[in-house]
């Protein structure tokens, strides 16, 4: 659909300008503004090359870590991102933050959405637990990378397998897992192992 939006300054977010949607069209086409069959698609090309310049990445790094309690992996990854001066959005089991700012009174999937939809962030770290996925599902269908530090132990084994499958299916780039965890390794072996990257202390 095409959404017509009125604002007095398109460079600013709507919550600053107070802009409003005035019309929604079901068969939108910006080429209609200057119809020219020879240059069909020209305007779209301009829009897309502005939004996604060639060679730049079009998605921010988004990593999901499946781990209970305070996660050292979350902390380590946060350090890596921060060392690259990236603005990190984080949802952990204890806090939700954008950079150094804590978001209060937001939990669960709403917290994941608050992080992932925040236009300020350059990278996202989402911590999940098997229990929360079992209870509430996921707030997203795609992630870049899923990290599995250990096999979740506080759920019934069949449920854990379902949770692992659901979560790892979101990873478009990779699933990085601790191969020193025997149960986790066994689970990976029983799966399609493409895109799985083992990490071992030995």
């Amino acid at each position: 659909a095409g959404v017509d939006f009125l604002t007095n300054d398109i460079t600013k977010p709507y919550w600053e300008t107070g802009g409003k949607i005035c019309e929604v069209n079901i068969q939108a086409g910006i080429d209609g503004m200057s119809p020219d069959p020879e240059n069909s698609g020209f305007h779209f090309e301009q829009v897309f090359s502005l939004m996604f310049p060639e060679g730049t990445r079009t998605a921010i790094p988004m990593v999901v870590i499946l781990e209970d309690g305070p996660s050292k992996t979350v902390a380590a990854l946060n350090d890596v991102f921060k060392s690259q001066n990236l603005m990190v959005g984080r949802k952990t089991t204890t806090e939700v933050s954008i950079g150094n700012n804590l978001l209060v009174d937001v939990m669960g999937n709403a917290a994941s959405e608050a992080v992932l939809w925040n236009p300020m962030i350059d990278a996202a770290i989402i911590q999940e637990t098997a229990k929360s996925i079992e209870a509430y599902g996921l707030a997203y269908s795609v992630s870049e990378c899923v990290i599995l530090p250990r096999m979740p132990s506080n759920n019934d084994p069949e449920t854990v397998k379902k949770i692992l499958s659901t979560l790892t299916q979101t990873a478009v780039q990779a699933v990085v897992y601790n191969t020193d965890d025997k149960q986790l390794s066994d689970w990976v072996r029983s799966n399609d192992q493409e895109r799985y990257y083992p990490v071992s202390l030995t």
């Binding site: 992996t73 380590a76 990378c145």
Partner: peptide, 22 residues
Amino acid sequence: KEKTEQMAILLALRAAEIMDIP
């Protein structure tokens, strides 16, 4: 405890490497 920390760092670095983050 130290092993958990080492593993955490290795996992984070591997993920960053895959995502082309130096």
